[in-house]
Amino acid sequence: MKRVLLFLATNLAVILVLTLVLNVFGIARGVSASGINIGQLLVFSAVVGFTGSFISLLMSKTMAKWSTGARVIDNPVSADEVWLVNTVRKLAERAGIGMPEVAVYEGAPNAFATGAFKNSALVAVSTGLLESMDRDEVEAVLGHEVAHVANGDMVTLTLIQGVVNTFVVFLARVVGFFVDKVLLRGNSDRGPGIGYMVTVFVCELVFGLVASIIVAWFSRQREFRADAGSAKLLGSPRPMQQALMRLGGLAPGALPSQMSAFGISGHGNGWGALFSTHPPMEERIAALNNLPPA
């Protein structure tokens, strides 16, 4: 639940800051005293909705390295590092993408991939994952992360987040105008009043919650595709299943809230499952059983 709240707070903060900036520069004129200009409001909503998402995507590699303390392996200094880099290179060639940066960071078992472009991504694994898995299992995890990159999942999730953010901003202002002018009968000579501002704030919270559920659902679907991608790259679903079973018995390493969707594991319980970016391990293992023969 803490990650959910941080995620919501981050998105709301981005929306509020961009809204303030656009208002200061006179760009946000979608709602006036006389009514709603749908075209202007849509443009305003799209700018607010997509700007934060794309900035986060473009900064994702830098932020990932900074927030996890990941060390990029430029010159392997051990046999394990040589194997790690060579394995990622082999998987990237099979997937038809450029060689990602390979990094290791201190922490409990986890791994992630990020980056705005397929041919310049970052694949990172934790020391805990390397220490708790055998090489076949680590290779399957690396295949999963490379599949994320090959599938363009980082860009796809960014676009989805931008779309739902746009609808949150747009619908919140439409509802706010309706409440202020129709239900509260605000002063039409002065433009939107306090009822509009309060309603917009509340609606952005509520609609943002619904948007987070939608984005989390899409994220869970991409995990199934990345698992299947790993099975395809390795020629068999068995290594990925073994890796998932191993991860299911380990406490997942925590990642910064803005990166939690990019980890290899993690699942919420109860209501938290609606906001979970990853399906339960049992479902992922079962889905690999249903893959068509290679």
Rank of each mutant, 00 (worst) to 15 (best):
F207H: 08
V210F: 15
G195D: 09
F177S: 03
V175T: 12
F178P: 00
I214V: 15
L157T: 11
N165K: 03
V149S: 06
T158S: 14
S188Q: 12
L184H: 11
F170E: 05
V146M: 09
V182M: 10
V198Y: 09
F170S: 06
Q161K: 08
L184Q: 12
C203T: 09
V174P: 06
G152V: 12
T166L: 03
G195Y: 01
V149C: 00
V169Q: 06
R190Y: 11
V163M: 10
D180P: 04
V168G: 07
D189N: 11
H148G: 06
V169G: 01
T158Q: 11
V200A: 13
A211I: 08
G152M: 11
N165D: 00
V206I: 14
L157Y: 05
F170P: 11
D180H: 03
P192D: 06
G152I: 10
L184A: 14
A211H: 07
V174W: 08
V168A: 07
T166W: 02
A150F: 10
V200S: 13
P192H: 07
G193D: 15
Y196M: 01
N187C: 05
V149H: 02
E204Q: 15
G162R: 04
F178G: 05
L171Q: 00
D180F: 05
V198I: 15
T156R: 15
I194M: 13
L205G: 13
F178K: 05
F167N: 02
V163D: 02
V174Q: 01
V215D: 01
M197H: 13
V146S: 04
F201C: 06
E204I: 05
V169E: 01
V163L: 14
I214T: 02
V206M: 08
G162E: 06
G193M: 07
G176W: 06
M154N: 14
G186M: 01
V202Q: 09
D189A: 09
L184D: 03
D189K: 10
I160W: 09
T166M: 10
V168E: 02
T156D: 05
V164S: 08
Y196G: 01
R185Q: 12
I214K: 00
R185F: 09
S188R: 11
A211S: 14
H148W: 07
D153H: 13
A147D: 02
I160V: 13
S212H: 02
T156E: 08
V169M: 14
D153E: 13
L209D: 00
D153M: 07
M154P: 00
I194Q: 12
L205D: 03
I214F: 14
R173W: 08
V202I: 15
L183I: 15
D153P: 09
V198N: 01
I213H: 05
G152K: 13
P192V: 10
L157M: 14
F178S: 08
G195M: 05
V146E: 03
V174E: 02
R173Q: 15
L209E: 01
G193N: 10
I160R: 11
R185I: 09
L171E: 01
N165Y: 00
G193E: 15
R173G: 04
F201P: 08
S188C: 00
G208C: 10
S188I: 09
K181P: 00
G162F: 07
G208K: 03
V168W: 06
V169T: 08
G176N: 07
V175F: 12
V168R: 09
Q161D: 13
A147K: 04
V179F: 10
I160D: 03
G208L: 05
V200Y: 11
